[in-house]
Nucleic acid binder design. Structure first.
Length: 877
RNA sequence: GGGCGCAUAGCUCAGUUGGUUCAGAGCACUUGGUUUACACCCAAGGGGUCGGGGGUUCGAAUCCCUCUGCGCCCA
């Protein structure tokens, strides 16, 4: 069955994906086999497939498909997360378009809209993964807001609270004024921005004197509650104990002393605004300063901003500067570059803000997770270089702010019964909360109506950090059969950008709840960048449409294209040309297949010697490639494993083996060769299948009719057999001979169809097993073994073997001599360097025996070659 | 400002404990080839002071120091 030009990738992909699904190959159930488990990094439920997803899901699919072929009970659990900030922001924006304001909705009403949105757009990304060929166990698909998933999150919150690890604190947090929520430190990006340093004059109370401070944020003067100087700074000794007057609002504030102030920076005088800067907060606490919060939750000014009330902070910055200037309080403005915290999601400039939030104590929790990765290797990061980054973050960890001022997510299970800060209980349900509240207050008249649940939701990562456990119901039901079998999982494949957000936290949670790491290996992929090294992003518009790529180059082609240049941990410079190379590889395999299907098989003819030896050689070559691939896979060098496969098929199988066994034009092929080659073709398909699942399944079924139990997807990895190293070595030699003949044919313009005679002085005593192959591949009519050099012949040498192609009259003796002299000169130079080493006693005594032996062999080879060259020269002149 | 990492062919990258196979691969490039699977092909070929400088060693892309240029993380 030939397919060639008729191969329609998209049709074939749909056909086989449906077939795989129909026969439930991707579904895993607990059995006696050893499990191999991967949990997907859950993408945002309303997201669409982008290059990063394609890359890491292709890698996961390669790993899981290979494991399946190797006989493991392979289980890849898919799912999505609710991405609270991103999704809530999208829903708010959509409602706004419809003229609905979130503030006018109740929590329940809003959540109804959010669920509608999720149901409408949710899961699109999972369907896109199917297009890519992802062999997930779809029956196990999970969503972080599924009832049983949420239940585990709540359970974990209550548990950690009861262990004293969760507390409520009034802290400076990162406030996103656009999303109107706090962010964790990890969700804040520090970006360099061009700003100004404003020099502002403050009057000293009861004096004509003034002092000057430098600030990047003049609008915060309304929140100033002190001026700070360094006690060692002699310039300001006269200010000690005095008070300053804040311009515009004319408030009187103390001048305090603290060594925290950098004498070098600005003017050496610092204005202190404890409500709006973390360092100022620290100074404020230390010196017991008043705290004045001047902002509303959208970062406009409140009544402390006086006549600026209601205006945005950046507008106020401009207007205040102008007013200060008019009042003569602005001394000067300098350009100043500083790093500004911005929201990862909304890009808004973060406002440090004091508020009540929920925190998770990290200090004790991280300990086992540090040990597991850095000491015990219970979790191995690939590549290893990320261990340093991990160490740095884990050893400098701060408490995790897990509350978000959002509705989309698990509502914090804290129930308030009074107005006091401590008037709450934490419980999995309101009924349990009521029991607790009654006993805490000794007030039996409390009812569920008197309880008010904290309005905030939990950080999404507080759901996903449980993911490898919760997808198997491991927190609800820790002793269940599946959890015991599939957990801990094997490999986790994700991007380095979420090493802290997610990976580290999963390890922490794993140890807290199971005393085990949730996975053994973490493979951190690179980020996908464009050719100009820019990160691919929607805003830059430099990310190709994933589905269009699949359409243009086939899913197999895109998979190969992505993997070809994706070494672990290195960023990937994406180039569509690579997909084209992938597509080309796919065509090459198809074309090789059609060749085999064009032959007529004749059972009566014997197997040619060239075919027999060629097949033996390829068997060893394939085995060698398998060993190499195992090594690459074990080190998560997926692109190297692919390259090994690529070269095996492209160069060794198509380039050499098929040429060796190919019958003459329109001649039949013997059945032994045909059957053996097809068996090897099947082995090739097995090896290629993890990379190109669709094409290989298609060809697999084209080779013969197979039952559903015989599908390639659930077949077996090739068996390990011994490698005949000697055969491989002899082939290398033969390949050099072939290359030598080809070079001469090219130089002398001898057409391939003109058969030539080749004679050899076999000084190397090379085995003649490959003679038949040499004769066939370079069209040699006779291959003679001789002992004396031939006159009027073109020559070339392989090691000390000399080859002759008789050529009447066409020999340029001078040129031949020149060629020989060149080779001689090079070889003599080489010999000198080798002998130099061998004469050096320190080398002979100091170097390992093996190394010295190899140098001696080099010496002997060089001497033999020189001998050959000299003899040839003598015979020519 | 603190920490980590990188620099090898035009591009993207391998190069394990310093030593056979060490200067490699793929792509790109140059030349030649198409009646006989594939031009998304085949064959042959060019191309590198291994970022600069110093050191250790019989021997350094590999180890040490230093300089330069990039990247990432954290503050």
């Amino acid at each position: 069955m030939a397919l060639g030009a008729t191969y329609n990738a998209s049709e074939i992909e749909d056909k086989w994906y449906a077939y795989w699904m129909e026969h439930n190959y991707f579904h895993s159930e607990v059995d006696e086999r050893e499990p191999y488990t991967i949990v997907i990094p859950p993408p945002n439920v309303t997201g669409v497939l982008h290059m990063g997803h394609m890359l890491n899901n292709t890698i996961q699919d390669v790993l899981i498909r290979r494991a399946r072929l190797q006989g493991y009970n392979a289980c890849w659990v898919p799912g999505t997360d609710h991405a609270s900030i991103a999704t809530e922001a999208k829903v708010v924006a959509k409602l706004k378009e419809q003229g609905i304001n979130k503030a006018d909705l109740t929590r329940e009403e809003f959540l109804k809209h959010a669920w509608e949105w999720t149901e409408e757009y949710g899961g699109v990304i999972l369907d896109q993964l199917k297009k890519l060929g992802a062999s997930c166990d779809w029956e196990r698909t999970k969503f972080t807001l599924d009832p049983e998933m949420s239940q585990q999150v709540i359970k974990s919150f209550v548990d950690l609270y009861n262990k004293g690890l969760i507390y409520r604190g009034y802290r400076m947090v990162n406030w996103d004024p656009v999303a109107k929520t706090t962010l964790s430190d990890e969700e804040v990006n520090h970006v360099e921005k061009q700003g100004n340093l404003y020099f502002i004059k403050y009057k000293i109370e009861g004096s004509k004197e003034t002092l000057t401070i430098a600030t990047t944020r003049p609008e915060t003067i309304f929140g100033d509650t002190a001026i700070c100087i360094n006690p060692n700074d002699e310039r300001f000794t006269h200010l000690k104990g005095k008070k300053a007057i804040v311009p515009i609002c004319n408030r009187v504030i103390p001048i305090i002393e603290d060594e925290y102030v950098d004498v070098e920076f600005g003017t050496g005088c610092l204005k202190v605004t404890p409500a709006h800067d973390e360092n100022d907060k620290m100074l404020g606490d230390k010196h017991k300063l008043e705290v004045i919060d001047i902002f509303n939750d959208d970062a406009s000014l409140n009544s402390f901003g006086l006549h600026y009330e209601g205006k945005d902070r950046f507008v106020v910055r401009k207007e205040v500067t102008k007013e200060l200037d008019e009042k003569g309080a602005l001394i000067k403005t300098e350009q100043h570059i500083n790093k500004v915290g911005t929201s990862e999601r909304t890009k808004a400039v973060i406002e440090p803000r004091l508020s009540d939030q929920w925190f998770l104590k990290m200090e004790e929790l991280v300990k086992p997770a540090i040990k597991a990765v850095l000491e015990d290797d219970d979790v191995v990061l690939h590549p290893k270089k990320f261990e340093n980054t991990y160490r740095h973050w884990m050893t400098n960890i701060r408490d995790w702010n897990i509350s978000r001022q959002l509705w989309w997510g698990q509502q914090i299970p804290a129930f308030f019964y009074g107005d006091g800060k401590e008037d709450f209980v934490v419980a999995e349900s309101i009924d349990e909360a009521l029991v607790l509240a009654k006993s805490k207050t000794n007030n039996n008249s409390l009812t569920t109506e008197s309880l008010r649940q904290d309005a905030d939701a939990l950080d999404t990562w507080f759901s996903s950090w449980l993911w490898p456990m919760s997808v198997f119901d491991g927190l609800n039901n820790p002793d269940n059969k599946e959890f015991n079998y599939y957990y801990p999982t094997n490999d986790l494949v994700t991007g380095p950008d979420i090493l802290f957000f997610w990976v580290a936290r999963m390890i922490i949670a794993g140890y807290e709840y199971t005393d085990k790491a949730p996975f053994k290996n973490v493979y951190l992929t690179g980020l996908v960048r464009d050719k100009q090294r820019r990160k691919m992003s929607k805003s830059l518009g430099n990310s190709p449409d994933a589905l269009k790529l699949i359409n243009d180059y086939s899913a197999d082609g895109v998979r190969v294209g992505l993997l070809l240049s994706a070494p672990a941990g290195n960023d990937l410079m994406f180039d569509e040309g690579l997909c084209n190379q992938g597509k080309g590889f796919s065509k090459k395999i198809q074309s090789a297949f059609s060749l085999t299907q064009m032959w007529n098989v004749d059972k009566t003819i014997p197997q040619p010697e060239s075919s027999r030896i060629g097949i033996e050689w390829y068997k060893s070559k394939l085995q060698k490639a398998l060993v190499e691939m195992d090594d690459h896979y074990s080190k998560y060098r997926i692109s190297d494993a692919l390259m090994t496969t690529y070269k095996l098929i492209q160069d060794e199988f198509c380039g050499w083996l098929l040429e060796i066994i190919k019958p003459a034009y329109q001649a039949p092929i013997d059945s032994k060769t045909y059957n053996e080659v097809m068996a090897l073709f099947e082995d090739n398909l097995r090896i290629v299948h993890p990379f190109m699942p669709f094409l290989t399944e298609e060809l697999w079924h084209n080779i013969e009719d197979r039952s559903p139990q015989e599908a390639l997807c659930i077949n077996t990895w090739p068996k390990v057999e011994p490698i005949d190293e000697n055969l491989l070595k002899n082939f290398e030699f033969a390949a050099e001979v072939i290359s030598g003949v080809r070079t001469i044919r090219k130089e002398k313009n001898i057409a391939f169809k003109d058969a030539i005679v080749l004679s050899v002085i076999n000084g190397e005593k090379v085995d003649s097993v490959f003679d038949a192959i040499i004769s066939k591949l370079v069209n040699i009519s006779e291959l003679n073994y001789i002992s004396e050099a031939l006159d009027s012949a073109l020559t070339f040498r392989v090691k000390s073997n000399e080859y002759f192609i008789p050529m009447e009259g066409a020999i340029d003796v001078e040129a031949e001599i020149e060629k020989l002299k060149e080779e001689l000169k090079y070889t003599e130079g080489f010999l000198r360097s080798v002998q130099g080493k061998l004469k050096n006693e320190k080398f002979v005594n100091g170097a390992p025996e093996q190394v010295v032996a190899s140098e001696r062999k080099k010496e002997a080879d060089a001497l033999a070659k020189i001998e050959t060259l000299k003899t040839s020269l003598v015979s020519l002149s």
